[in-house]
Nucleic acid binder design. Structure first.
Lengths: 253, 253
DNA sequence: AATCTTATTGCACAATATGCATAAACGATT
DNA sequence: AATCGTTTATGCATATTGTGCAATAAGATT
């Protein structure tokens, strides 16, 4: 298969626009993407011409343009996994009280694409659209664990495992061992691997072909989610994920 | 300035994914874009690899992918014209009871990027993200009227003015005459030009440099918005648009 | 005013996208 | 189940197109 390189570059550039950095200038993008400033400049001009980007005031910096309103509206009405999952996710939230989220693969990262809020005042909060790593946090590890081995290795051996907290697994071998356990157990646990004080339990959702499609998480503050309830909670998450997988399989799309 | 052609093609392809046609296959896109099937096929493969698109079930058709969740979340928190406009729009809705919307330019079309719902049961309803023509409907005509003349002409003389209803102006000369009146009056009116039974009154919003930035509309069923109230309503819309323009000018971005 | 940083552009070269024709995959129909 | 008709993917040669470099221009900072 032959891929169009400049299109890939344009997407890499657009991917720099995140919740954390919604406004960017040429050099910043150039540094993040390892593309030369001339290339970035030209692609930005193209994206701006096509209204995917717009320039902010007089600063010359760029942010997402009006075209994305079109695409956001299409997403909103998209009948898909989210719709099938939502009722099950709400049942799970009512069972445990904690935040329930769905994460999907995006190259070597994951994106939260559906969330049901916690009942508690002190709670884990993950905005839909948030980008997260794959190698830490239970939601990422599950996606990684059930990926075909070659793809998995490429990601793990990519450009090093960034340390987010003291609990982040940064050794590829230890990580592989952990992923193997996750495949055996059918669920993953994270205690502050990505964010201090967070605890989450996560199970995989598969598509019709048995390929990993998403991960289903419950997450909350570590002081409320004790290991004593792990067996019970893990069972609940696994069953919910299985229910979604089944619904998903029966939906012809 | 040199623009990257394959990036433009990719955006044209992505632009085919709309509220009306959220799922598409190669030939359909090829017909809509006038790109050969091989080109479309290769760009689609690239967009799918980068998770901008995903294939639906076994049909092989494509729809928007997970990457757009990232961008949609960035839009949602984007501090911009919408935020400045919303309070003014709500005031205007409370004044007239009808739907109030904001439309922006996207190449030779417009996109609704903000909407405040009508108070009435029988009402005009425009979803955010909806794509509409420029040459008909007051919201489009205002954007067109205040565009720099060369750009305006390019659009009007583009590929013909499509007839939406019996009231659509399809003669370029008549349209130019109408646009001139709109510039003189500072507002536009449409009686069922794009959609039978709709009536709207629209005024322009400008940016810091005096360039047209958006159009502010009130729209409702024609039986409720009578010409008798036009002067009063037009005044209200113009004042609201002026207020937004002023706020916008004072915001340093 | 002078210096430093950042963004844009002209040009020549090399990389890369393209179209055509072909093959492969898929669906529909009998 | 086999055939036909669509639709999609790919190999290859060619020419278009994107690219880096260096220079310039535009802004920011001191």
């Amino acid at each position: 298969m032959t891929f169009i390189k400049s299109v890939e570059k344009a997407i890499d550039i657009l991917s720099c626009f995140t919740l954390e950095t919604p406004v960017l200038k040429v050099v910043e993008i150039s540094n993040q993407t390892n593309l030369t400033q001339s290339t970035v400049s030209r692609i930005l001009a193209t994206l701006a011409k096509k209204k995917c980007l717009e320039q902010v005031g007089a600063s010359g910096k760029y942010r997402l343009g009006i075209k994305f309103y079109q695409w956001a509206s299409v997403l909103r009405q998209k009948k898909n996994l989210s719709d099938l999952a939502r009722p099950v996710m709400e049942k799970l939230r009512d069972f445990c009280g904690e935040e329930v989220t769905l994460h999907g693969l995006d190259e070597n990262r994951r994106i939260c694409f559906e969330a049901v809020k916690s009942r508690f005042g002190v709670a884990k909060v993950t905005p839909v659209g948030k980008i997260l790593p794959l190698h830490c946090g239970a939601g990422g590890k599950v996606l990684l664990a059930f990926l075909p081995p070659p793809e998995r290795r490429k990601i793990i051996e990519g450009k090093g495992l960034e340390q987010f907290t003291s609990n982040t697994i940064v050794d590829p071998l230890l990580l592989e061992k952990d992923l193997e356990k996750i495949r055996r157990d059918g669920y993953a646990v994270s205690k502050g691997e990505r964010e201090e004080g967070a605890y989450s339990i996560v199970a995989p959702i598969f598509d019709q072909n048995g390929k990993i499609a998403a991960s289903l998480s419950i997450s909350g503050p570590i002081f409320r989610l004790s290991d004593l309830d792990l067996a019970k909670n893990a069972e609940a998450v696994k069953n919910a994920a299985k229910e979604i997988t089944t619904n998903f399989g029966e939906c012809i799309d």
